[in-house]
Design a protein around this nucleic acid. Structure first.
Length: 111
DNA sequence: ACAATGACTGAAT
DNA sequence: AATTCAGCCATTG
């Protein structure tokens, strides 16, 4: 197991996503200055299971609001259930009104 | 060392 | 408007 700073930075950002909000892999990658590495953000999420910290990985969806990572949770229904508990409506594995829920670290964390 | 694979995305067709 | 192509780069076979 190698710990690259990139993974840790991803976790930092994901942990800052407020409940009831979601962001995308690309948005996180862009915030970290490596917009081309959206896939690596997904990889970091895959590895997040191995960490002790509680990473709200269910709040990370793709740019279309599609719950592409749902299959990687212990229970495939967990991701949708967790989001619905936070007041986000899901239909056909997709976030409804993504615009209202989208949390862009580039905007929200810009200083 | 080479090729394939992905929790992605934006451009091209 | 919908689908396909092509970069992307760490990880795995």
């Amino acid at each position: 197991m190698s710990h690259s700073g990139f993974f840790d930075m991803v976790y930092q950002v994901v942990k800052m996503i407020p409940p009831g909000r979601v962001t995308s892999y690309g948005a996180i990658a862009r915030y970290l200055g490596d917009a081309k590495s959206a896939r690596m953000v997904g990889w970091a999420m895959n590895a997040s299971h191995n960490t002790d910290s509680n990473i709200p990985a269910h709040r990370v969806v793709n740019r279309n609001g599609l719950l592409t990572g749902l299959a990687h949770f212990p229970d495939p229904a967990y991701m949708q259930r967790a989001l619905e508990q936070e007041g986000i409506r899901i239909q056909e594995n997709r976030v409804i009104n993504l615009d209202e829920h989208f949390w862009d670290p580039m905007v929200e964390l810009s200083l």
